[in-house]
Nucleic acid binder design. Structure first.
Lengths: 212, 212
DNA sequence: GCCATCCTTCCGACCGGACGGTAGGCTGTC
DNA sequence: GACAGCCTACCGTCCGGTCGGAAGGATGGC
């Protein structure tokens, strides 16, 4: 206590303002990083703005200078992730035409993004519904784009006769997406399950089946 | 305003205390039902005890008579679901010995429980992490029992030579569980996808593979 | 059958604390 | 000197939980 607005500073031990050089963008980044960690661990609602600022060695004031609101930050994180998804999808579509290869690539890419964007993914699935009105719509739209791409590739495979026709493309897509998305619950949690290895096994399972 | 402790009642329009007969257990049940709906829609943290009580046409006082705390209610809901899971698992284990049949049954059962216990499932996956210490441990323990049963059945299939040996049982289990668990995000959401039909397709996909 | 008593069930007002957000001032950069 | 970056102090609100009491069922004695 005390201290507050001490008359005309002299600030015996005032912490240097920008010890690592003047770089506001870096401050912003560290707030995001801090939030990613905390949101992943404790969830959006159970993480206070104060905690985010603390972990970044800043104050709430700094936070609200860089972000309009707590929701604004969440939006930013979600978009960051979805952008990455969309560009990855485009890469796959630009690749091989073989439906089987594409499905395998989809699995590989999905798992990789889970591993790489772990915090983003966790937050995305857990806190998506907390976005309001048009924000939610925007995020959902991009989300649907990703899923539509999945479904499109599988449907394409069926049409070309490479994939079985008696399986509904939509259902298969949901299954595939779920299988991969769920990985955020366990991947990297227990031991050294390499992403590539898991992707290979999932592909085998889905394409050729479990039966011996 | 005013009113409060009006001397010796006469209570011109006092709502009858138990219009549907005296049945405390029913009150308790209606609080749980109310919570299930609200938790599913808005999440645990965004649902206030006041709202739960309101929707059940009761007050916070009544709530705290029937439950120790908000967490206590959550615990109750989680356990309700897990008990149902465990008994279902036992049924499957008591059924056919054929690994392929068992896997198909697991899928069918998982999807059915998602459809039937929709709110429970949603809440379970979204709010599990908010349980504290030993409660979390207890819930996780039961959860692991369910997953271990899955893994055991698949491993059994591999050992018997009915399922392929080059797929790791653990990974396959994770995939299967994910595929089914994910269904809580879309099942019943869009149109009349019958549970049995989805189960059939998932089984075909996993056991025989997508390739034509 | 009736009454006095206890106990469960439920109500309503209240408390303390946490949290999102704001306002105004200080500080260093350009 | 203007302005971006950051900080301190503060506000209003909401929410989980508590407490004392009222109202009506259950119980037991007569």
């Amino acid at each position: 206590m005390a201290r507050a607005t001490s008359a005309r500073g002299e600030s015996t031990r005032r912490r240097q303002r920008w010890p690592d050089g003047y770089d506001p963008e870096n401050t912003r980044r560290s707030l995001i990083t801090s939030a990613l960690e905390l949101f992943e661990r404790s969830g959006f609602d159970r993480t206070s703005v104060q905690e985010i600022a603390d972990q970044a060695h800043l104050t709430k004031g700094a936070f609200y200078h860089h972000f309009e609101s707590k929701d604004d930050l969440l939006r930013h994180i979600q978009e960051e992730y979805l952008e990455a998804q969309l560009t990855a999808i485009q890469q796959i579509e630009a690749g091989s035409d073989d439906p089987k290869v594409r499905v395998a690539e989809l699995i590989r890419f999905s798992l990789r993004s889970v591993a790489e964007y772990r915090a983003h993914v966790t937050i995305f699935y857990q806190e998506r519904r907390y976005l309001t009105g048009e924000l939610f719509a925007e995020v959902t739209r991009k989300r649907d784009l990703v899923e539509a791409a999945f479904a499109g590739m599988i449907q394409d495979g069926v049409t070309k006769g490479v994939l079985r026709a008696d399986v509904d493309a939509r259902i298969a897509t949901f299954g595939l997406v779920g299988m991969c998305a769920w990985a955020y619950q366990w991947l990297n949690m227990a031991g050294p399950l390499s992403v590539e290895e898991v992707a290979r096994q999932f592909s085998a399972m889905v394409l050729e089946g479990l039966a011996a």
